[in-house]
Write a protein that binds this DNA or RNA. Structure first.
Lengths: 178, 178
DNA sequence: ACCTGAACACCGTTCAAGT
DNA sequence: ACCTGAACACCGTTCAAGT
């Protein structure tokens, strides 16, 4: 699964080949079908674990600092890290792009990833503006997730992490994120 | 090319099949190779024409109104339109996601698309803040392009245009775009 | 319980052959 | 100039057969 995740983050779900993956982990492609009957089952498992790992990481970040600016920096650092690891993309961002090739089950997992991000970001924002309504916080959180995903997508297209850094800076100086 | 563009915007470059495309336009897959020797040649042609069409459209928008807010609304409407057309994505956003499966030539075309967007957005922003440096304008323009691409990507993942609309509103109320 | 080789219909690509 | 059928090595998937 670790190998598959890296492949999808680098080249997309459609470009992931069972035979290639099998060679990577030292078994035959037919053997992978024993663990994941279809390619879609693998995608569901990948998205689920990806979200689990993110949630754990975000809990860790929140426990380390209560400052909204520091937390947001740590958040942006997650998506930055993917770019640093061979210009890779967020797994669920990639799956969102390839949405029409995926089953409703995978799409549901992508939604759960988005929801986990929005929930965490909303809490960070709440500490910033305690007078805002939960709905307004959620919309702002959704906007930050979208903006960061977009920054990663465009920076990846440029093949340059500095583009990502400059864009995050621009978001901040515009007042989109703390 | 029109049929191919729609297919890539819907399901991605990797999911585009020469045989499927051939069936759509009523010839055999081998015949497509006469016009586009490789799949990559087709991708280059698609990206180039896509950017040309965008530039023409943006010129048209600029000629219709000099108001920055109205121009920005028309800009956001372009990416909104793709979502309305069967939840499709910006062609070059899709190609940016699939970057590692594409030749340097296609990547160059994606860069040109980005550059065309940034140039147009910079002009709109210059009318708003005439005292800003060209460099600051360009960074802000880049941030807007990234944010809009991200809004489209995440909203597509949700399969709901209203998510896109809410996100663009949030960008505006945060002060990211006029 | 886990793996494999062989088969199936798909894919991009090539090429000799047709008009 | 444009199209085609047949072939090549790839792909996900299935399945009977192995340990």
């Amino acid at each position: 699964m670790a190998a598959a995740r890296l492949m999808v983050q680098a080249r997309g779900y459609n470009a992931l080949s069972f035979r290639e993956l099998a060679k990577e982990v030292g078994i035959k492609s037919a053997s992978i079908h024993y663990h994941f009957p279809t390619k879609d089952d693998l995608a569901v498992a990948l998205a689920r674990r990806y979200t689990e790992d993110l949630v754990l990481h975000l809990q860790n970040v929140a426990s380390k600092s209560k400052d909204a600016h520091e937390r947001m920096t740590a958040y942006a650092e997650i998506f930055r890290g993917a770019l640093l690891r061979s210009n890779r993309m967020c797994l669920c961002g990639m799956l969102a792009a390839e949405r029409d090739d995926l089953s409703p089950q995978v799409q549901e997992e992508v939604q759960k990833f988005n929801a986990a991000n929005v929930a965490w970001l909303s809490e960070v924002l709440a500490a910033c503006d305690p007078h805002q309504s939960p709905d307004a916080l959620e919309r702002r959180a959704f906007a930050i997730l979208s903006a960061v995903e977009g920054a990663q997508l465009v920076a990846r297209g440029c093949g340059d992490v500095r583009v990502y850094d400059r864009t995050i800076d621009a978001y901040r100086s515009a007042g989109l994120m703390p």
